[in-house]
Write a protein that binds this DNA or RNA. Structure first.
Lengths: 357, 357
DNA sequence: TTACTTTCCGTGTCCGCACACAGAAGCAAA
DNA sequence: TTTGCTTCTGTGTGCGGACACGGAAAGTAA
């Protein structure tokens, strides 16, 4: 057993430094009222012994209660944000014994007023920390500006607004994930194949994620000089009218006979998959994002070739954990955290989903 | 905040059930000396209130010290087992405050006597739990048989011997990972391409992992009728003579002019990469296993196309954690745990490595 | 009823730490 | 030397839970 795993208590430090436990405690917390002489003696022993506080005992003894708030979009069952929400739940139950509680607030991601309203409410409640998905840039900056003024720390999840004074950001490097999607999709494609790119209109603010993914995708095309090797074309999907999308695809297939691959940049590739199955176009290779239940099903069935995943539950969980590290445990944290770009095929999805950390 | 995240103490239970804290404690631990009437009353309240013990307080109060031993092969710096070892270190420092210490014992994976010797020593020390890599089947069974007899729980890491009465197993589904390797490698390959398969002779016992990977690989070939579409051939590598391997490759390239891809089933694809660079054969797509530093470097440089990873540090960490769950926290655990089959390209390796859980 | 088991239960102490509070030590002015 | 003040330090209590111990309640035998 190496020395780092040795158990050392404040009591031990106190004896070795020839002072009382209270003095050691004061040094540990920079709480003042300690003579220079004692401080030095304690710090010396602290250093030599590689003291690591027992965080459990610490939060057990601490009377402070932390009220965290998370602010994410409302969602339908099985949607992307549900998995984020689950991550927050997990964190809530894991950190409950550290005197942490998490209050969840939902806003409508297509309605900026809902965002404003919810952020106003949160400010009223004067929380100890806030986690939010910064869907609306300007309104987020107003909100986080006020949080900063009140010295309430906050973290971004899913996407980021660099100008704000956030504590951490967890999310995926969307550009890079688009780049990888292109590589996976175009790598083995015969020349002159048609590549169908599904773009989805969103009401209200446009999500940064899908745009970055698209840009990453096109960057790969450019880097490898593929723009003339294949025929790329976009198809616009409507967000809320699947019949229209179906009809649109029908038109597309009437005139394009060499479509080999297709991609969507949002998480709803299962809708495309469904239409392709209906239209009997199952030879087309599909790639999409995120592990929605329906996406997984189509992956397992072989309709979707690749899914790119980003551990949304972990993003939420770690966001909470890092806030605890900051406020409670006083540990080092990293500001920007890109989660891995996980590549899932039907052959590795089962182990991936089964594996509980 | 849902009710599961409510903080409830033994004290609260005691009051609600109209008994003392000691009685609640006795019920919680099945320690007897409780009348049927009290037991029922307590269990009822326990149920209704969704009591979850504060594990930190619990281990703080507990005086029992757990001595775990892990038994893995010796390794050179940067080798596969180093990452396993690091996982154990991490676990040691994380669980140290739960009165757990981990003693590490190493054996020579090419010498069965070393395995026997180390397992004998471990038995002498009468540990509270053992984690081991079951490299030698018969000797492992002898060892674990004795452990079972003495009621010392043990877990397998990396590979598994199903007949033994182990607590958990963490490892990768090697067969499946070989299958995926084949898919990634052969998916986009022109007909008649040559596929070079590197096999490495090992002294002593043969590792199950590499054999299963090979079998998985060949299964994909069979499932997709590729045996005649491509030309597969094996090249035998020696475990300890790189000059010989280099020469062998030189011979191979003299007579085989259409080698498009190559694979190794152990973690030492970097050696192959090195030789290919020397031999100026950098157009060959390479796939290999495990994130050794050198492998990563060749992946980043574009010499290796894919690496398949298996989170060896996590395997070790979770093995320890699950033993704690079993012995200390009395929580549910899963016996067989396949870790995800992670697919790494040069485009996602950085985020993968950066991401610290 | 008394004496003695056996079964059952409440209280106290400690785990490592945070924090409050009382009080010692040091120092200056009277 | 005494008083008054500041600076510093030791001790005590409680966080939620484990466990030991002593003793109450209930049951049995005399």
């Amino acid at each position: 057993m190496d020395e780092k795993s040795q158990k050392i208590r404040i009591k031990d430090i106190a004896i070795l430094a020839g002072v009382s436990e209270g003095t050691v405690d004061r040094v540990l917390h920079n709480r003042g009222d300690v003579s220079e002489k004692s401080r030095k003696a304690v710090n010396k022993v602290l250093d030599e012994m590689h003291y690591t506080p027992n965080l459990f005992a610490r939060s057990l003894a601490s009377k402070k209660h932390y009220r965290f708030v998370c602010m994410i979009p409302t969602y339908q069952p099985e949607e992307y944000w549900e998995r984020v929400d689950k991550g927050f739940d997990q964190a809530a139950s894991d950190f409950m014994h550290h005197n942490v509680s998490i209050d969840k607030q939902y806003f409508n991601q297509f309605d900026v007023n809902s965002f404003k309203e919810v952020s106003r409410k949160i400010l009223e409640n004067d929380p100890d920390a806030v986690f939010l998905a910064p869907i609306f840039k300007n309104e987020t900056l107003l909100f986080t500006g006020e949080l900063s003024k009140r010295k309430i720390p906050f973290s971004f999840i899913d996407s980021i607004i660099p100008e704000a004074d956030y504590l951490t950001y967890y999310g995926q490097d969307s550009f890079q994930s688009g780049y990888i999607a292109a590589k996976l999709l175009l790598n083995s494609l015969p020349e002159q194949s048609q590549v169908m790119i599904i773009r989805t209109q969103r009401k209200g603010e446009v999500s940064n994620q899908t745009i970055s993914r698209y840009n990453g995708f096109m960057q790969y095309v450019e880097d490898n000089n593929l723009i003339n090797k294949f025929e790329f074309f976009n198809v616009e999907f409507k967000n809320d009218d699947e019949q229209a999308n179906y009809n649109r695809l029908q038109e597309v297939f009437a005139t394009n006979k060499n479509i080999k691959v297709a991609i969507t940049f949002n998480s709803k590739v299962y809708l495309l998959a469904k239409h392709l199955v209906s239209l009997n176009q199952t030879k087309i290779s599909l790639i999409g994002y995120d592990l929605l239940k329906q996406n997984i099903k189509y992956l397992q069935d072989g309709v979707i070739s690749f899914l790119i995943a980003q551990r949304p539950d972990k993003q939420a969980y770690f966001t909470v954990r890092d806030m605890c590290k900051e406020l409670i445990f006083k540990q080092e944290i990293k500001k920007i955290n890109f989660v891995p770009i996980d590549i899932l095929l039907k052959e590795n999805i089962d182990d991936y989903m089964e594996f509980k950390e």
